[in-house]
Design a protein around this nucleic acid. Structure first.
Lengths: 346, 346
DNA sequence: ATTGGCACTCCAGTCGTGCGAGTGCCAGCT
DNA sequence: AGCTGGCACTCGCACGACTGGAGTGCCAAT
């Protein structure tokens, strides 16, 4: 069994390894940390840690490197969040302050996060399971083209251009608009989708030709709602992956691909399990199913007026967890506050 | 002076080097190409090409590699576009066909292009110097929040949420909407911006408090128009940069950064000079000012109902120019046709 | 002008060597 | 029982020497 000091040795190894990017040996540990014991003793502890598969030696005669399991123990039991400096807090505030719609705020958030951590930053749009539709607007562009706009109470706005094949007069348009309103406004997105499906399949389905055009509009609205339901990401800082090449043994290709795909990261962000503080980490091989075996993701829940979502960073498994966890949490909290204010001004 | 055969030798060197990624020697040339002369003769030609700085030898006793100048001559005088295979043409069609708004079409275009070339694909939004405003729409969201929507005849739609501080009744709103309409609809974006500036500074500037709110709306419209004026890019395939690492001697960091910045690439795309077919290439060091000294951009103009813009690919200097030029041109042509159709259905 | 021949250069790979960091183990100490 | 110093051992890595081969430049001959 690993002793208490053994765990401290693990912590020292993780810290030094993240610092120096080189395997750390027993001698280096006694030099850099005041353990009050000799290198030989540390060696014994390290042997035990290796038995537990928390660290490994890349070569027979080299220092040790934490395993993914080692990082996991470090994050769960040993890491204390490194508090942010006042300058960092100020940076968050200056990045995020200033009004704008949701898109705008999230873009600024992701920029702040990539700036502060030097990693790839990811912000998940608020989940729309609980979002409700507040407006449906139709704008006729002429030539049978119609702009369909849907707004939710979380501040998200979506527009879509659809070709309906005919132009309506104002009365008809108002009628359709009102119909959509009673169908959707004040309802959660999920429910709105159901009601639309019912309407399209309902007894009215055999309606006259004129109705076909309105069906087209309804379909466009449904597509937009569907898009709301699918979560969405904003990202920034992908160039950081290429900065210190040594961070990733293999190619960064799968990482860039995942970033471009988005859907992989969405699933990953969704499946992570947060602790009681809303913090979550997914480390190395734990991401193997997502093709990100050499990467870690650190994320924090934030609260967008009732809808939960996440902000996080993606980086090498060998990342500075205490700092990244603290930064992600600070940004998430600030973001939550921002969105609350926005809500109250509504 | 370089002989006619000398140029053919240059062509052979470029082709083989792109193929094999290794310096090409005189012997390899006589083996792979039917020049009907001996290696020694080729060597003499190569010496001349080296005098002209069209090729260099990385080491005293190694084959030759084209210089940027060599690539330039190749592209300008020696490259014949490699015609696309029917399968490739079909791929373009299947990617691009299907309706949708401008955003949608451009996203599909950029995907098609990255798929076909294996490079980073870039599509520039149509320039809005000549775009005219067709609709301005206001949607009140309650709580003093207003959604401002602007549509241009190029099919671009932009929405912006702004906080105006008060809610208008329907009559006032209609009045404001009509005012904006006469101010902007049918006018080019550039002119619209001027007229807004005049209005904001004009004698009405000292208007009553109620007018302040409308000023806020006008300002929001101005911001949107400003955004139209700034060109915009869609990109895809950045992961391709990391695929064959050897393509870039240094780090791909500056490239990823340029991709994220966008503005650099926008300037680059804008400054490239097209030939009579609307094709343009910027090679290696020619991009040095943009931090892309190891990359080339190949682009083709396309015509979005009168507004000129570009689609292109970004890749290593050592890229397959004939194929990329042909692909970019084919996609640009298809895109032009698509947008024309769309226009006629208006 | 083209060619075959030849001497020359220099890269890239291989092998051997020595060094140093780090380990594991053990006997002795507290 | 746990800690420590010591010691032999293992490897990775950097360095240098050597060699093979690809490619060049030049020259005299055609």
């Amino acid at each position: 069994m690993v002793s208490e000091r053994g765990l401290q040795v693990l912590r020292a190894i993780v810290q030094d390894y993240v610092d120096t990017r080189e395997p750390v040996g027993s001698k280096a540990i006694v030099e850099r940390h005041a353990f009050g014991v000799s290198a030989a003793t540390i060696r014994n502890d390290m042997a035990l840690l290796e038995d537990e598969e928390l660290i490994v030696a890349p070569h027979t005669s080299s220092g040790r490197v934490p395993t993914d399991k080692g990082y996991r123990v470090f994050v769960d039991h040993l890491a204390e969040l490194r508090p942010l400096s006042p300058a960092q807090r100020a940076a968050i505030a200056s990045f995020l302050d200033g009004s704008g719609d949701l898109d705008d705020v999230l873009v600024r958030t992701v920029r702040a996060l990539t700036q502060l951590t030097g990693q790839v930053a990811i912000v998940q749009y608020p989940s729309f399971a609980r979002a409700t539709v507040t407006h449906v607007e139709l704008v006729q562009l002429g030539g049978g083209r119609m702009l369909v706009i849907v707004v939710t109470d979380t501040g998200r706005v979506s527009q879509r251009l659809t070709f309906v094949g005919e132009d309506f007069d104002d009365v008809d348009l108002a009628h359709i608009r009102a119909g959509l309103g009673t169908l959707l406004v004040g309802r959660p997105v999920r429910e709105g989708l159901q009601r639309i499906a019912e309407r399209l399949e309902g007894p009215d389905a055999q309606a006259p030709a004129h109705e076909r055009a309105t069906d087209e509009i309804v379909r466009a609205v449904a597509e937009e709602l569907e898009e709301f339901r699918q979560d969405k990401l904003v990202m920034a800082g992908s160039a950081n992956l290429a900065r210190r090449e040594s961070d990733f043994r293999g190619s960064i290709y799968p990482l860039l691909e995942a970033i471009e795909e988005q859907v992989t990261l969405l699933r990953l962000m969704g499946e992570m399990v947060a602790d009681e503080h809303g913090l979550a980490a997914s480390i190395g091989r734990e991401n193997e199913a997502f093709g990100l075996a050499e990467a870690s993701v650190v994320a924090s829940d934030y609260d967008a007026t009732g809808s939960l979502a996440r902000v996080g960073v993606l980086g090498p498994t060998r990342m500075d967890y205490p700092t990244n966890l603290a930064t992600v949490r600070a940004v998430a909290r600030y973001l939550t506050r921002m969105l609350e204010q926005d809500d109250s001004s509504r």
